[in-house]
Amino acid sequence: MGLDPLALFSVKLSLKVAISSTAIVTLLGTPLAYMLATRDFPFKNAVDALITLPLVFPPTVTGYILLLLLGRKGPIGELLYTLFHKGIVFTWYAAVVAAAVASFPIFVKSARAAIEAVDKRLLTVSYTLGKGEVNTFFRIVLPLAKRGIVAAVILSFARALGEFGATLMLAGYIPFKTNTIPLEIYSSVSNGDFERANLLTAVTAAIALVTIYAINRLSNRSKQW
């Protein structure tokens, strides 16, 4: 039994959502992780707690909060409608937002731990030699913390690929529009089509294993360089 068109669409959509959300999380989460790891500032613990909330909340609660914020009557959603005359709820963009929010704390905490492991004396020496903070980050911190950050990227991608609860609340299950693999598996099980659910589960496992293997190979090569 092969993948039917709807299942094939869910695979393509899940990859697009996971890649998009991981890119967003990496771009936003890396400087935040660096700031949390290297600086003391007011309300630092509050910021860390806020970042951690999606890990504590049930996914459906996270999705409901996002729906309140991004819905047409929500503060962000209303602004989007005012500016662009459209919103993101019940679109594939909503799935990206849900996946990004769910995977963001995993990335930040993993990347922060990797950055904190860098010897602070090296940063001090770099600053003493007249190198700025940006230069020090890219020349010292990033190379030394690279393996940990790559691991954070892998974990974020895996979390985004498997996101279900928040996606269902914010994007819904709309065939050929928002049906990611987890939602398609849920639909298959609900309809008693376990063979189809098993096939999609196998595809998900294969994607995850190939991705982890490829990134690990890339990480090992960069380490040799």
Rank of each mutant, 00 (worst) to 15 (best):
S126C: 04
G77D: 09
G130D: 04
A98C: 07
A94T: 10
A100R: 07
G74E: 12
V125I: 15
A114E: 01
S126W: 04
G63C: 00
A114M: 01
E116M: 14
T62H: 02
P54V: 10
L80I: 08
A102T: 14
A98T: 06
K131F: 06
L53D: 03
T124K: 14
D48E: 15
I76Y: 12
Y93Q: 15
T52L: 14
V101P: 01
T52W: 00
G130S: 03
V101R: 05
V125R: 07
Y81A: 05
G71W: 05
Y93H: 14
A100W: 07
Y64S: 04
V97Q: 08
S103T: 11
V125G: 04
K109G: 08
S126R: 03
K73A: 13
A102W: 01
D119Y: 05
Y81S: 02
L67Y: 10
P58K: 06
S110G: 01
P59G: 08
L70V: 11
P58R: 05
V97R: 07
L70N: 12
A95V: 07
V118W: 03
T52H: 11
L122E: 09
K73Y: 13
V61E: 04
P105Y: 13
G71K: 08
I88S: 13
P58Y: 02
S103Q: 02
L55G: 13
I88D: 11
A102C: 08
D119L: 07
L79H: 01
T91V: 08
G63E: 00
I76H: 10
A49V: 06
T91G: 09
L50A: 14
K109D: 08
L68E: 12
F90K: 09
A111Q: 05
A98Q: 07
L69Y: 06
V47Q: 10
K86S: 14
T60S: 05
V125N: 01
I115G: 05
I65V: 15
G87N: 11
R112Y: 00
A102R: 10
T62N: 03
A94D: 11
V101I: 14
A113G: 12
K73Q: 15
F57D: 00
A95R: 08
T60H: 00
V56N: 07
R121I: 02
G87P: 06
I88V: 15
R112G: 09
L79K: 09
A94I: 11
V56I: 15
L69M: 15
L123Q: 07
T128N: 11
T52Q: 12
T128D: 06
G132P: 05
K109E: 13
T124M: 13
F107E: 06
F104V: 10
L67D: 02
V97Y: 04
L55T: 12
L67N: 06
V125L: 14
A99Y: 09
L83V: 12
S110Y: 02
A113T: 12
L67V: 03
R72F: 05
L67I: 03
I106K: 06
F90C: 06
D119P: 01
A95I: 08
K109R: 15
E78Q: 12
D48L: 11
V47N: 08
G130V: 02
V101N: 06
H85V: 07
R112F: 00
A98S: 10
K86P: 00
I106P: 01
I76R: 10
L122M: 15
T52D: 10
A94V: 11
A98P: 00
L80D: 06
G74H: 12
L129E: 01
G77K: 10
D48M: 12
L67G: 02
G77A: 12
A114F: 02
K73P: 00
P75D: 12
F90V: 10
T60G: 00
